[in-house]
Amino acid sequence: MSLASNALMLAQQLDATDAKNANAAIGAGFAYGLAAIGPGIGIGIIVGQAIQAMARQPESAGQAQTTMFLGIAFTEALALIGFVVFILLKFV
């Protein structure tokens, strides 16, 4: 209760710039955090399947590895766009 009222008092003292910065910081955290979920799962699936392919057919390991990096690069782009949004919200 006291924490909430303190927060309320603090919130009333904030001027517009502070409020904007605070919102941007929260948004930045969520932007990167949410953007990392999907690619995290996706990269896990890609690497797992690539390891399975390499274990089943060691002679095609080179090709599986190249394709794996390609898949990781495409999947990772989404997380990286989230990171760029984080930078834009937090610092710009």
């Binding site: 782009a77 990286l80 766009i81 990171f83």
Partner: peptide, 13 residues
Amino acid sequence: FSHAIRLFANMLA
């Protein structure tokens, strides 16, 4: 842009 951002964001991170 996705080609460039992939490299840029990785290195900046």
